[in-house]
């Protein structure tokens, strides 16, 4: 981790820590804590996807499907089979990892965008299974009465408790990703992104790394899905369709594919947009997302994260100007 990341880490930690204290005392935004829990859950997905898109240079259109695999594994294992939620979570992640590996090995040996195609099909299949396998998943009407989470006998009921729990998990995942990026494996990934042939000739096993990152992104999505299940305590297949996969891709694009910080920023922004600000568009919401994707791709290829250094630069310049006067 370099100096900038360390500062960003501390800054974001402080921001996240004080947020509920502020939000709960202002009436019209007191429910923002609840929104931020969802934002935290989605941040886990976008972190994994950012590693895949920004560093391994591949796109997955099935993150919602892995999210769904995690969510339904937790839902079924806890409410139907009486498992402890903390046991169900790794089980769901394991299933997602296995499935990702099976798709990833053949798709990633090929160059180009085969993974996007393969995952597109896979996402649709998962969505259909969740809707049709009525006996286990409850079909289109979904599942209810899924137990919540407990930590050492203490039930997580309040939004604030969930908020702090989920954001600690996000910080741990972020720390993990940053460590990977600034290490042997991360250098290999960045090298693949810039000059794949040269990376391969310098001994980087490109196909193997891509599969590993894809599996990792699936695991993070599945874990996020488990948290989601235990937070909302009910499930329906609509939350795991292609639209959601696109939304996850959009989170990473808006935030900036080359920045893990951007991935979190994008997740927070799009969660607020989806849950709060874009409600007035109702059925036209999808148009707004389309427009956002276009704008991000055309005018801000580096995402919002690329604006941060520029803004800081402008600040610095105007400050020095003022001081000189």
């Amino acid at each position: 981790m370099n100096k900038k990341d360390r500062w960003a880490f501390v800054g974001m930690g402080l921001l996240i820590a004080v947020f509920p204290g502020v939000a709960l005392n202002v009436k019209c935004i007191s429910h923002y804590v609840d929104v931020m829990v969802f934002a935290g859950i989605f941040s886990l997905v976008s972190l994994g996807l950012c590693m895949l898109m920004g560093y391994a240079g591949q796109v997955s259109m099935a993150q919602a499907a892995f999210f769904g695999i995690g969510a339904y594994s937790s839902g079924i294992l806890t409410s139907r089979l009486g498992w402890n939620p903390w046991m169900a979570m790794p089980a769901g992640a394991g299933v997602a990892a296995l499935v990702a590996w099976i798709i990833g090995v053949p798709a990633l040996r090929l160059k180009g965008h085969y993974l996007a195609m393969a995952t597109l099909g896979f996402g649709v299949i998962v969505h259909i299974i969740l809707g049709e396998e009525v006996k286990w998943t409850g079909g289109p009407s979904g599942m209810v009465d899924i137990p919540g989470l407990q930590i050492a006998g203490w039930k997580l009921t309040s939004e604030v408790a969930w908020y702090y729990m989920i954001w600690s998990v996000v910080f741990m995942a972020l720390l993990f990703c940053l460590h990977v990026i600034y290490s042997r494996v991360g250098r290999g990934l960045r090298a693949i992104h810039e000059e794949e042939m040269a990376a391969e000739s310098m001994g980087v096993p490109t196909a193997c790394y891509k599969v590993q990152i894809f599996v990792f992104s699936a695991i993070l999505s599945a874990i996020a899905g488990s948290f989601y299940t235990h937070y909302v305590t009910c499930l329906n297949p609509g939350s795991f369709n292609l639209m959601w996969s696109i939304r996850f891709v959009l989170m990473v694009m808006v935030g900036g594919t080359q920045s893990l910080w951007g991935a979190i920023l994008g997740a927070v922004l799009l969660t607020f947009a989806g849950n709060e600000w874009l409600q007035i568009f109702s059925d036209f919401e999808i148009l707004v997302y389309g427009a956002m994707l276009l704008c991000a791709a055309l005018f801000l290829p580096g995402g919002l994260a690329s604006l941060v250094p520029k803004v800081i630069g402008v600040f610095r310049n105007s400050l020095t100007h003022l001081c000189k006067r």
Partner: peptide, 18 residues
Amino acid sequence: MLGRHPKTKSGFWATGLR
């Protein structure tokens, strides 16, 4: 440093967990 790849072996999980 990238050139050291063939002579080193830390994997994905080892680097993530430092």
